[in-house]
Amino acid sequence: MQTNRDLDIKEEIKKYVTFLKEYDGETLRLMEVCGSHTAAISKSGIKKIISPKIKLISGPGCPVCVSPSAFVDRLIELGKKGAHIVSFGDMMRIPGSTSTLNEEKGKGLLASYVYSPLDIIEMAKKEPEREFIFAAVGFETTIPTYTLLLDRIIEENITNIKILTALKTMPEAIDFLCMNKCDIDGFIAPGHVSVITGSDAFNEVSSKYKMPMAVTGFSPYELVLGIYALTKTCINKEKYISMGKSLVGNYYKSVVETNGNQKAQRQIDKYFRKGDAIWRGMGNIPNSGLYLKDEYLKYDAGSQNLNDDKKINKACRCSDVLMGKISSKECPLFKTLCNPLTPQGACMVSSEGSCYQAFKNND
């Protein structure tokens, strides 16, 4: 049975979709910087029902995709020395400078994928004589899980687990995109990240570049609402600025608070410090990485100075896709040499990658 609220939501969606479909103003380029948003937008078919003057652009929202080749090379090096490498599934297929974890596993390297970092604990307890390395990649969403892993390692005095980190923070990446004058009119801010950071985390970069931003969820209704609100903010940007009104809107209030998850933030601050980080295809982004603090370095597997970022195929244009300079379809390798079975770049490897989603959903 439909409730009055169900009917209200249907009417709201109809209003938002009609507006977005009939929009005929200046062309707007709106970038999502969350891999889950990229997947949800592609799956929902939203791009096909909105005005061609509203361009939805995929950005650097996939943490696996932006991990540099040197990170993979280091994991393989540690594995060849006898360590058991443990990671999330997509990480197994990401190319290093010459190989992947999957390829090396086929040659005898000990490498496994898990669904939770905490799974490594029982693995390590069963083989106390072997070193276990977790490939710790992720943005603010995933980082608290690594702090829980560290809590357990310390509490239980487990001495054969270390982590290799490629942890990155999103506000600095958005700042980098704006600073490099990428042709973006507004950002769909990352929903999962915002649960941890809070919507206020984006106020500084928004104010600095006068950049509209909208925090939104992942359902078709939430996405349509967020894109509608972001479009309206772009249209009224100068008016909002003159009124002293923030250009950051939170349209995911069911789970995102202004100040975020304070407990998770304290956990992150306990173990990690800020530092520069290499993003695959984008280069060095100041203060965008998180590294274990000095007092916890005995749990680090050598995460510093992993700066090499080599391409497997020089014709791959993943870096331009990540920066919003071209679409996946504009890469000369897309759907020819590059596909999910034979990926030539990181954007095609991960299920959250821009090229993977464009291939899968024919975007």
Rank of each mutant, 00 (worst) to 15 (best):
S199V: 02
T165F: 11
L164I: 08
I196P: 03
K107Q: 13
N287I: 01
F334A: 05
K210E: 10
S254F: 10
E12S: 03
V224K: 00
I153Y: 11
Q344I: 01
Q262I: 15
F218R: 03
S219T: 14
L223G: 01
I268G: 10
I153F: 10
G353M: 10
C318D: 06
N287A: 04
G106Y: 12
N180S: 06
L150V: 04
I94C: 08
E172N: 07
N180H: 15
D183G: 03
S99Q: 07
K162R: 14
S206H: 09
L109Q: 05
I54H: 03
L337V: 07
K81V: 00
S207P: 03
A173Q: 08
K270D: 08
C347E: 06
G275L: 08
V17P: 01
Y240V: 01
E103M: 13
I54Y: 07
S36Q: 14
K253S: 06
G89Y: 13
A346S: 15
T3W: 00
P171C: 02
A201M: 04
T336R: 15
R93W: 11
L177Q: 10
E104T: 00
S99F: 11
D8E: 13
L78W: 04
T141D: 10
I94D: 01
P52H: 03
K105H: 04
C318V: 00
M91A: 10
G108A: 03
Y271K: 12
T147C: 15
I120G: 01
I46Q: 01
E140S: 05
D6P: 01
S219G: 07
F134M: 01
S246E: 12
